[in-house]
Design a protein around this nucleic acid. Structure first.
Length: 112
DNA sequence: ACTTTGACTTCGG
DNA sequence: TCCGAAGCCAAAG
């Protein structure tokens, strides 16, 4: 699971970004945005700077936030105020990186 | 086994 | 746009 999430993150190409929620979903664990965050903190060697909060907002604080923004701009990602331009730079995942999307039997995602 | 803890998200005011 | 509350889920202690 940590693996699946790590893989998903590694799939984000340079110059593109994604969100915690989107990554979680792409990895096969919808609604597990927080776990994506944990993986980023735990595992290194990942393009952590390409992961943003919903709407392209930076969820980090202090220097990390500044550094993240700096790195992204260096890759060509443009910011509008405090947000990254998601319409342009959000990476679209094709499918869950590992086998069955479902590992813990959860519903397909009916929503309401 | 139970409680706490997040680099989260969405909604309402 | 900013702030607070509630929902979420697995890992840690």
């Amino acid at each position: 699971m940590v693996t699946a999430i790590s893989n998903a993150i590694r799939q984000i190409p340079r110059g593109r970004v994604s969100t915690y929620g989107a990554i979680a979903k792409a990895a096969g664990y919808p609604r597990c945005a927080r776990h994506v965050a944990r993986v980023l903190r735990l595992v290194d060697g990942l393009p952590w700077q390409r992961v943003l909060g919903s709407g392209g907002r930076i969820s980090l604080r202090g220097e990390l936030a500044l550094e993240q923004r700096f790195l992204l701009e260096a890759e060509g990602v443009r910011f509008r105020g405090r947000r990254a331009d998601m319409k342009m730079f959000e990476h679209r995942f094709s499918s869950p990186s590992r086998k069955s999307p479902m590992a813990t039997g959860r519903r397909p995602l009916p929503r309401k």
